[in-house]
């Protein structure tokens, strides 16, 4: 049987509210607005002002974007005990994406106002919010690094294909430093990209040879 849901207990488990005395949690919980919803209901639309932090007591929620053709692209699917729209709740800005339920759900909204007041009144809470945001930023930075590596891998694949068709380009041989200079990155990133290409089986290192073993694959990695 499902345990009876307690907003107070739930809040206590969230990173932000850790260490809050029960009386404070009680007061915060009182501001939470219950939102029982049916499957397929739209919770909010991208661009609308954010009403607060959403909490899922039970149910399934999809966070999605629509492309200009109206096609749906699901970013995340969330389930029991998860939260969403923290950032909007903190800055009261616009929702960055759309949200709708996939099943009958019991949701709660902790209003933006509650967050605002807590941040102003409670230094420890504000510090935890900063920590949470810092962690997010770190996550984003590593995502950007992944994307950068991705684009370097694509460009290294292109360069290799170009080199092999034009031996004059090779001259005294390609070095990682030369590739790095050419692609405005570091030799370490080139090494990682070359290793990635080797792992896919598109190229192979044999002493001073970079052998293109699967040209079709290398071409597809190069997006050619």
């Amino acid at each position: 049987m499902r345990q009876p849901f307690s907003v107070v207990n739930y809040l206590g488990q969230l990173g932000y509210f850790a260490g809050q005395p029960p009386a404070t949690l009680e007061r915060i919980a009182e501001t939470a607005i219950p939102k029982p919803t049916e499957a397929g209901e739209t919770l909010f639309l991208e661009g609308d002002p954010c009403v607060g932090l959403w909490m899922i007591e039970y149910g399934r929620v999809k966070i999605y974007k629509l492309n200009p053709q109206g096609q749906e692209h699901i970013l995340r699917i969330l389930g029991d005990n998860e939260t969403f729209n923290e950032i909007g709740a903190l800055d009261g800005g616009a929702n960055p994406a759309n949200a709708a339920t996939l099943s009958d759900s019991m949701l709660w909204v902790l209003p933006t106002q509650t967050f605002r007041e807590l941040i102003l009144k409670d230094n420890a809470f504000a510090a935890r919010v900063i920590q949470m945001l810092a962690r997010r930023v770190r996550g984003l930075v590593s995502q950007i690094e992944d994307l950068t590596l991705y684009s370097v891998t694509v460009r290294v694949a292109r360069l290799l294909l170009k080199q092999v068709d034009d031996p004059a380009l090779s001259g005294t041989g390609v070095t990682r430093a030369a590739l790095a200079a050419h692609l405005a990155t570091t030799p370490q990133t080139i090494s990682t990209a070359l290793r990635e290409l080797e792992t896919t089986g598109a190229i192979r290192f044999d002493r001073h040879h970079i052998q293109i073993v699967d040209e079709a694959l290398l071409r597809s990695i190069a997006m050619l």
Partner: peptide
């Protein structure tokens, strides 16, 4: 200090 470089020859097998 990037003082060492290994040159490679790219070729098809």
């Amino acid at each position: 200090v990037y003082a060492i470089e290994l040159p490679y020859l790219v070729l098809r097998v």
